[in-house]
Simulated assay, not measured.
Amino acid sequence: MYIPPAFREDDPAILLQLMRDTRLSTLVTATAAGPIGTPLPLFFDPDEGEHGTLYGHLARANPQWQAEPIGDAMAIFMGADAYVSPSWYAAKQEHHKVVPTWNYEAVHAYGPVEFFEDPARLLDAVTRLTNLHEGAMATPWQVDDAPPAFVQAQLRGIVGVRLAIRRLEGKRKLSQNRSAADRVGVARALADSPDPVDRRIASLIPLDSIR
């Protein structure tokens, strides 16, 4: 991922929180036939490995798990994003030398990928992923709410994914390269947007140095 210095994010706490907040990531592997990507919900285990480990599962019919990966796999976690209009910049009124851009947050996690079929490991991964997303429900659904034979049958239709993280790259492009006045203009415009994701980006634009 191309990361200019102004947008680089190296704080592990920020990177891991962004990964946790991203409900659907994309698993990408390089293969002899070309790259393959699959949108997947993944959960992060911080206690496994030097940089933590990602787990998930994909459909057994998905050819990605059967294609031998070349090198490390990559999991892409996209955070909030927003279009930035040049009309929001104070600089537009000064010289008009402005163009549109996009603000966003992203984390790329790299490491060797393992696809597994062991029923016990699959059940553990499915249970942990389910508990993660059901935790906020008023009445959380649990895997053992379903009949055991049904659960085992469902497990035969999936393959587990394990990615031991070797390296993390983080990018938070939040108008840090613009003047104080331009950042204020972008933050105000996005804060007034009806889109909650736009408003999320507005709250992240660094204004602490602006008086």
Rank of each mutant, 00 (worst) to 15 (best):
81 D>I: 04
82 A>D: 02
82 A>R: 02
82 A>G: 02
82 A>W: 03
84 V>C: 01
85 S>N: 11
88 W>L: 12
88 W>Q: 07
89 Y>N: 10
89 Y>K: 08
90 A>R: 15
90 A>M: 06
90 A>I: 04
91 A>I: 03
92 K>I: 05
93 Q>L: 12
93 Q>P: 00
94 E>I: 13
94 E>C: 01
94 E>P: 01
94 E>L: 12
95 H>Q: 03
96 H>R: 15
97 K>P: 00
97 K>D: 07
97 K>C: 03
97 K>L: 09
99 V>F: 00
100 P>H: 09
101 T>F: 01
101 T>L: 05
102 W>P: 04
102 W>R: 02
103 N>A: 08
103 N>H: 03
103 N>T: 04
104 Y>N: 02
104 Y>K: 04
104 Y>M: 02
105 E>C: 13
106 A>K: 06
107 V>S: 00
107 V>N: 08
108 H>D: 04
109 A>K: 05
109 A>I: 07
110 Y>G: 04
111 G>A: 09
111 G>D: 07
113 V>C: 04
114 E>Y: 00
114 E>H: 06
114 E>I: 02
116 F>R: 08
116 F>M: 01
117 E>H: 08
117 E>M: 09
117 E>A: 15
118 D>S: 06
119 P>M: 00
120 A>H: 05
121 R>L: 10
121 R>F: 07
121 R>G: 06
121 R>V: 04
122 L>Q: 07
122 L>I: 12
123 L>G: 05
123 L>K: 15
124 D>K: 14
124 D>M: 11
124 D>C: 09
126 V>S: 08
126 V>K: 09
127 T>P: 10
127 T>G: 10
127 T>A: 11
128 R>G: 12
129 L>E: 07
129 L>H: 11
131 N>S: 15
132 L>V: 04
132 L>N: 02
134 E>F: 08
136 A>L: 14
136 A>K: 14
137 M>A: 13
137 M>N: 12
137 M>R: 12
138 A>W: 12
138 A>N: 11
140 P>D: 06
142 Q>S: 03
143 V>C: 08
143 V>W: 07
143 V>L: 14
144 D>W: 01
145 D>H: 13
145 D>S: 08
146 A>R: 09
148 P>L: 06
149 A>G: 03
150 F>M: 14
151 V>H: 10
152 Q>E: 14
153 A>Q: 11
155 L>T: 07
155 L>I: 11
155 L>C: 03
156 R>P: 09
157 G>F: 01
157 G>S: 13
158 I>A: 01
158 I>M: 00
158 I>V: 13
159 V>F: 06
160 G>E: 00
160 G>P: 10
160 G>T: 02
161 V>D: 05
162 R>G: 00
163 L>C: 06
163 L>N: 05
163 L>Q: 01
164 A>K: 13
164 A>D: 09
164 A>Y: 00
166 R>L: 04
166 R>K: 15
169 E>F: 09
170 G>V: 13
170 G>F: 11
171 K>D: 03
171 K>Q: 11
171 K>V: 15
172 R>Y: 13
172 R>A: 10
172 R>L: 13
173 K>P: 06
175 S>E: 04
175 S>F: 05
176 Q>H: 09
176 Q>L: 09
176 Q>P: 11
177 N>L: 03
178 R>K: 15
179 S>V: 14
181 A>N: 13
182 D>W: 09
183 R>L: 12
184 V>R: 15
